[in-house]
Design a protein around this nucleic acid. Structure first.
Length: 303
DNA sequence: ACTTCAAAGCCCGGATAGTA
DNA sequence: TACTATCCGGGCTTTGAAGT
């Protein structure tokens, strides 16, 4: 059987998108070229790899075997390219990863900064998105890993998760805010001000629903960009959420002030972050990805 | 040993037929 | 109607023979 990595990539894309049209689009091919690529792979294998009679285009038994090996081979090829780049250009490879809004405000920029000092020739691009979009990109092999809340992935054998230190998050307001000087505030007082936050993390959503008593609670201001939200908090009377990753400034520096809410016990599990590194199980990471994860863990440990 | 060049092969996109 | 398969022509790459 002749092994063609391009065809294997196409087969993986077909499995992920479950549509010739969508998969062709994802790999930048026309539908006809994509269809022929899958046919050529099936011809090489000497059997059907996709059950076209099934509406979800599921792989046949042979297709599942090919898929399993295809993932390993494609990942191996990527790692090989990166390792050769490491030898040839002294860390001149390319790394792409993703980050959730909260880690992207503080942890990721610091780690990327340190990484760049260590590997000045490496090209790094990271994208900040909601966890579902991060997951889509991970599955499409656009990312090697992402840094985000790991709750959605821990129990799923398709993923490998590595937890960072849990941190206490706080409601916060600007210095000079009517609540800033208070030792503690009630939920009612807190919610009398507009809330500017992202409610994607399930723990934050649960706390807000419990505090407000409303299952459909929505903040007044929502945005995926953590920096923008904290900017709103600094420029208004809105209440925000500091991620516990170093965005609170010492008093007197015009930064954000944490607010203690009387109804929330300090040991409440939902008040702690569960950030971590999420990658695909069964895929080894490139040396650059490993190096970036090391930096993320070092920055996490140092703060 | 190296270069040139034509033929063959491969892959592509567009158009369209066939099917559920 | 949406989706996959096939036909066709164009462009690029590879191969191998011929020439230097």
């Amino acid at each position: 059987m002749h092994i063609d990595l391009r065809q294997l990539r196409h087969f993986i894309a077909l499995h992920e998108h479950r549509s010739f049209v969508a998969a062709a689009l994802a790999v930048n091919l026309s539908q006809s070229a994509f269809s022929r690529s899958i046919q050529a792979l099936e011809h090489s294998a000497g059997c059907r790899l996709v059950d076209r009679a099934a509406k979800d285009l599921r792989p046949t038994k042979q297709g599942l075997i090919v898929l399993e090996h295809a993932r390993r081979l494609v990942s191996g090829a990527h790692n090989l390219a990166n390792e050769i780049a490491l030898f040839n250009g002294l860390e001149a490879g390319e790394l792409r990863f993703g980050a959730g809004p909260a880690p992207a405000t503080w942890l990721v920029p610091r780690a990327v900064g340190r990484f760049n000092v260590r590997y000045p020739k490496a090209r790094v691009s990271f994208q900040v998105e909601h966890w579902q979009a991060l997951n889509r990109r991970l599955q499409a092999e656009e990312f090697e890993f992402f840094v985000a809340d790991t709750r959605h992935f821990e129990a799923d054998p398709q993923y490998r998760t590595s937890r960072l230190r849990p941190r206490r998050w706080h409601f916060c307001c600007r210095e000079g805010h009517p609540l800033a000087a208070r030792e503690s505030v009630s939920a009612e007082e807190l919610l009398s001000f507009p809330l500017a936050t992202n409610i994607s993390p399930p723990n934050i959503r649960k706390v807000l629903v419990d505090l407000s008593g409303r299952p459909d609670f929505r903040p007044a201001i929502e945005c995926e960009n953590g920096h923008s939200l904290l900017g709103v908090v600094l420029a208004s009377d809105a209440i925000g959420i500091s991620s516990g990753l170093g965005d609170l400034a010492p008093p007197g520096q015009g930064g954000l002030r944490p607010l203690r809410v009387r109804e929330l016990p300090d040991d409440l599990d939902e008040l702690h972050t569960r950030y971590g590194i999420v990658s695909r199980a069964g895929y080894s990471l490139s040396p650059l990805a490993e190096a970036m994860i090391d930096e993320l863990k070092r920055v996490d440990d140092a703060t």
